[in-house]
Nucleic acid binder design. Structure first.
Lengths: 218, 218
DNA sequence: CGAATTATTGAAACATGTCAAGGATCGTGG
DNA sequence: CCACGATCCTTGACATGTTTCAATAATTCG
């Protein structure tokens, strides 16, 4: 499912566009591997698998998922270029990770030096804050509000252009927002009819009225 | 809203019943204050307030909350005796914390030594895992499944007796599970009629059929 | 004991899910 | 490069779970 690139990459990661200042600090305390290429929908790590290394997204998109016993899926996070994922409490992954599109992932094996936790902690805390904010969205927002929150978050992480490029499909958005994919589709057309967004392409949305989206999000 | 206890408490925290092994490690790297007593519904820290110290629950219950612009509330977590809360990415609290009942909280001011992050990281990661699992509940479970998950979680954290004592009211449970308090009430009576639980008292539930609850939770 | 708060229950409204059909898009192989 | 099949997306009609509003009952607190 994945291919190691033949050339050894530079240690300085190329995933710089949106990289948080916490990442370089982490790189200094890990042994970054070469970039592995993952095909769409391929698994990066499985639920129940032994945890340990962290993962840096060089390009592409990753989803962190969990299933209920009867197969309903919740995506707890998407990760884009420059972001790190794979933190776990304990030795076992409680979630599984998949590549959404074609992605490049660098495995970061911790050097067991003293400063390791210092480097990881801020990233773990950022993930925690994100998850907590997502709880508010899932628990207390309606479909339109969820969608607005998602679009604004995506725009923010893509560098605040008003045109958003989607790597994930409606299905993924639905499972991230706790909706059905039909509802995702309906909300998008509703926002389009209200001239809040336009949809030049299935995987591209232009935000026409950002203020309206921000009002929606609350 | 809170009263400092006159006597200086021992550094060895008394909140041992459910204490995680990670907590003693943390205590060794902080300057624990005396226990502060909080009255029901009093604020421990506010959203937007400067973050820094951590908080150890000695007794009682704490809720971590966030409001939408129009006043809907999401409780992202409850914390019981022996648990630590107050982690933040950055310098500012993104959530606010309140005492649910009468609680005793010990402020842990970090000593700025090298091992601080090592002590905090496991606790932060546990909070992260909890939040992620809560995302599945909020996003993909129906009211009965949410309730089952909540009851089993509570039972587990109270030491796995089949009788659960609630410190929070229906309203709090609703805001934790992303439901209305009426629905919480209805689900409880439904479970009672199905002989899955009994409700000897408004703030006490006995689990009669744990397997049924586990099936529900998934 | 009485007032205020909290919890339960019912009826109706509403948002979202489910099921089903038709369109668009994408990838592949001729 | 086009045509085909498969996948994904959109839209509609209907079913359903949950919320909302309202009234009553239970509990807590002074």
């Amino acid at each position: 499912m994945f291919i190691q690139t033949g050339f050894r990459q530079q240690t300085n990661s190329s995933a710089c566009r949106t990289m948080s200042p916490d990442v370089p600090a982490l790189l200094a305390h890990t042994c970054p591997s070469a970039v592995s290429l993952y095909t769409p929908n391929s698994e990066i790590f499985a639920q129940g698998e032994r945890a340990g290394p962290l993962y840096l997204v060089e390009f592409g998109t990753v989803r962190i998922c969990r299933l209920t016993a009867d197969g309903r899926r919740q995506i707890s996070a998407f990760h884009f270029a420059g972001e790190v994922f794979g933190f776990e409490y304990g030795t076992e992954h409680h979630f599984y990770a998949e590549s959404v599109d074609s992605s490049g992932i660098r495995v970061l094996r911790p050097r067991l030096d003293d400063m390791m936790a210092d480097a990881i902690l801020p990233l773990a805390l950022k993930s925690l804050t994100r998850a907590q904010e997502h709880l508010l969205v899932l628990g207390r927002q309606n479909a339109a509000e969820k969608m607005a929150a998602f679009l604004l978050d995506l725009a923010d992480r893509q560098g605040n252009t008003s045109v958003i490029d989607f790597s994930m499909q409606r299905n993924d958005i639905a499972d991230y927002l706790g909706l059905s994919f039909e509802t995702v589709s309906r909300i998008l057309t509703r926002l389009k009819l209200a001239k809040v967004i336009s949809i030049p392409h299935v995987k591209q949305i232009e935000m026409l009225d950002i203020e309206a989206l921000e009002d929606l999000r609350g």
